[in-house]
Amino acid sequence: MHEHDHTHETPRDVTDLLRDAGLRPTRQRVSLAEILYSQGDRHISAELLHEEAVDAKVPVSLATVYNTLHQFTEAGLLREVAIDGNKTYFDTNVSDHHHFFIEGENEVVDIPGEKVGIGLVPEAPEGMEIVRVDVIVRVRPKS
C-alpha cells in the first residue's frame, strides 16, 4: 500500500496507485483519484466528491462517482465509514483507526487506532472472519 503522506501527488502516482490496486486507470478513475488524494487524508461523501469533480470540470455523473468510490473501496484504496446507514463517507486513510462523528455538522474526524481499546469482541459466526472493528464515537458541542 502507498502511504499518502505527500499532499500533492502527480498523475503518474495516481495511475500507479490504481494499477497496483488492480484497477485500469481510466480517465474518470484517474481524475477522481487526483481529487481524492491531492489533499492528504480526508473523509468525503459521494455527493461532495461529485461537486468537486464538477468544479474541476470533470464530466462525471453522481452514479459514476458512487461506482468508482465502491470500486476503490473494494480494491483497498478507500475505507467506507457508514454513519446511520444513510450517510456514507469514504476515507482516504486506510490504516487502522476509528472516528468521531460531529453531530449537526456531519463531520468525521479520525481517532488514532491506539486511542481506542476494544475489550470483548464476539466470535465471528461460523464460516466468517472479522475484517476489522469500526468504532464511531458521536460527539456534539456542550450546551
Rank of each mutant, 00 (worst) to 15 (best):
M1C: 02
D5Y: 10
H6T: 08
H6I: 12
H6F: 06
H8L: 12
H8N: 13
E9Y: 07
E9P: 00
E9H: 09
R12V: 07
R12Q: 15
V14N: 05
V14H: 07
V14W: 04
T15A: 06
D20A: 15
A21N: 03
G22D: 12
L23C: 11
R24S: 14
R24N: 07
P25G: 08
R27F: 05
R27G: 09
R27Y: 08
Q28P: 09
V30M: 03
V30P: 00
A33F: 02
E34S: 04
I35G: 04
L36Q: 02
Y37Q: 03
Q39A: 06
G40C: 02
G40F: 00
S45P: 06
S45E: 10
H50K: 00
E52T: 09
V54A: 10
V54D: 14
K57Q: 10
V60D: 03
V60K: 02
Y66Q: 01
N67S: 10
T68N: 11
L69N: 00
L69M: 14
H70F: 13
H70E: 15
T73R: 15
T73D: 01
A75P: 08
A75T: 09
G76A: 10
R79F: 11
G85V: 06
N86M: 13
N86D: 15
K87A: 13
F90W: 00
F90C: 03
H97F: 03
H97V: 02
H98R: 02
E103Y: 12
G104N: 15
G104E: 13
G104A: 14
N106A: 15
N106I: 06
V108F: 06
V109D: 14
I111P: 02
P112Y: 09
P112H: 14
G113C: 11
G113H: 13
E114P: 05
E114Q: 15
K115R: 15
V116Y: 01
V116C: 12
I118V: 06
G119P: 04
L120H: 07
P125R: 07
P125G: 06
E129W: 04
I130H: 10
V133E: 11
D134A: 01
D134H: 08
V137K: 15
V137F: 07
R138T: 12
R138F: 06
V139R: 14
P141M: 09
P141Y: 06
K142S: 11
S143D: 11
S143T: 00
